[in-house]
Design a protein around this nucleic acid. Structure first.
Length: 424
RNA sequence: GGAGAGGUGGCUGAGUGGUCGAAAGCGGCGGUCUUGAAAACCGUUGACCGGCGACGGUCCGGGGGUUCGAAUCCCUCCCUCUCCGCCA
């Protein structure tokens, strides 16, 4: 959520900033609602003040044993008038809130302008795609040859966009998770965290998935509004919801491995082959909660932590600065990490590292007590995949294949595979 | 699943219709004293909204209701704890 004060004081400025990302702010509607809100709030508060003083007077009169009847008569209709004003105020406030919750974050000034992913800007590359003297297979064919990657069985068990893994591939998948968690906890200073895979609506509102993106989520049949998490970002970031964090425990750095569940509504026909786009996938997620002044540096640092995984695995990748038209709803800036996939002959997203500044924190009421002023201030939140495990598995299969369709195990993973050097 | 007890400020905990945003203690902050520290003593100490400000308003788990007036009464939901049953 944007700062309502900023929106009020600089509506046109906000509209201009938001237009960069293709969002049209309904300035007239907001202005008119805001005006109504102000009036109604003043009226309501005046009536409340009157009720308070009169009620106090009644209390005092009764305490002294005086007759309170005249005052009671004077305030007879006050309750009704107050209720009417409160109801109107509430209605206007709700309309205003609904609009406010639907406004995306303002991009940072140096985010490149653009309409869609074609306007994203590559900022660096790491590693060279291997020169192959044979026609590379994609991970589906490799999986079939090695055995242990089975989409047909998954379709029988559930439906499309699921996978069954077994044997060496299943182990490699698990090894990746262990490797990533170990790297981030022992070398990057993150605290390993285990969280629920089911969250309530309030948590999803806090990180920005609700109310706007409900169709992307799996909702449970349950008395309460429960959803499967689309990313660990939701439960992990919500750890600090409604919390005032003491300075000594800042910054907070969490790493969590969870499955992620996405309905992929609206992506029919996209990435239908293989395990690039699944309804269920594993991810190791990095989340940082930092002091408001520190988020730009933290964003670079966190992106570097995600890159370190690819570097250890010796997978060629590039870093892309998402343009204003492509960054997510809650983000002020996002770097995507794209890994080289020989089976597709292109770079594909494997991690997305975002700075949300105070956008999520405001929804979460996540604050930090500034030792300088001793006052609570909104924190800044960030997160990034470190990494998407399924896609990392795909990248290893495709980048480490040989002419015979066998797959070497990256050196960094061999300790996690009992010393095994290749899948065949 | 059955029975019961609770949810109050950073923490413990009092308050069961009227100057209660809320006693007291702890903790925090400032001060006196001290070479310094401790102890003792004194003072101070919640968040949010509107307003340049004076100030006004809201908040005692969430929501709704009764009342001139609710932390206190009623309804409902959520959460925690204890006992029994079941269970990875």
């Amino acid at each position: 959520m944007l700062d309502p004060k900023r929106l009020r004081n600089d509506l046109q400025g906000c509209a201009t900033q938001l237009a960069r990302r293709g969002y049209q702010l309904e300035t007239e509607t907001i202005e008119s609602l805001e005006e109504q809100r102000k009036q109604l709030q003043v009226t309501t508060q005046e009536l409340q003040a009157e009720r308070n003083t009169q009620s106090k007077a009644i209390g005092q009169a009764k305490a002294k044993g005086e007759d309170a009847a005249p005052i009671l008569e004077a305030v007879a209709d006050l309750g009704d008038r107050l209720k009417a004003a409160e109801t109107q105020l509430q209605e206007v406030q709700q309309q205003l809130d609904a609009i406010l919750l639907g406004i995306p974050n303002i991009p940072q000034p140096d985010v490149p302008d653009g309409r869609d992913e074609d306007d994203n800007v590559e900022i660096r590359r790491w590693g060279e795609p291997r020169q192959l003297d044979f026609e590379p297979k994609d991970h589906v064919d490799l999986g079939e040859q090695i055995g242990g990657l089975d989409f047909d069985t998954a379709a029988k068990l559930t439906g499309s966009r699921f996978a069954v893994m077994s044997g060496g591939i299943a182990r490699l998948h698990r090894a990746l998770i262990q490797f990533m968690l170990d790297l981030h906890t022992t070398e990057h200073g993150y605290t390993e965290t285990y969280v629920p895979y089911i969250v309530n609506a309030e948590s999803l509102r806090g990180t920005g998935q609700l109310p706007k993106f409900e169709e992307d989520l799996f909702k449970l049949h349950h008395e309460q509004d429960f959803y499967l998490i689309p990313t660990a970002e939701v439960p992990v970031t919500n750890i600090v919801r409604d919390v005032i964090i003491e300075d000594e425990t800042m910054p907070r750095k969490y790493v969590a491995h969870t499955p992620c569940f996405r309905s992929e509504a609206g992506s029919y026909g996209k990435d239908t082959r293989g395990m690039i786009r699944q309804h269920q996938f594993e991810k190791v997620e990095l989340v940082q909660v930092v002091r408001p002044g520190d988020s730009l540096a933290a964003h670079e640092e966190l992106t570097g932590h995600a890159e370190a995984v690819l570097q250890r695995l010796e997978l060629p990748y590039r870093v892309v600065d998402l343009c204003t038209g492509d960054i997510g709803f809650s983000a002020s800036r996002t770097y995507d990490l794209e890994v080289w996939l020989p089976g597709q002959g292109k770079y594909r997203e494997i991690s997305s590292c975002s700075n949300f500044e105070d956008f999520q924190a405001r929804r979460l009421r996540a604050r930090w007590r500034n030792p300088g002023t001793n006052k609570p201030e909104l924190v800044h939140t960030l997160n990034g995949s470190g990494l998407a495990v399924g896609r990392t598995l795909v990248a290893i299969l495709e980048n480490y294949q040989d002419a015979g369709g066998r797959v070497a195990i990256p050196a960094a993973l061999q300790p996690y595979m009992g010393g095994l050097q290749r899948l065949e």
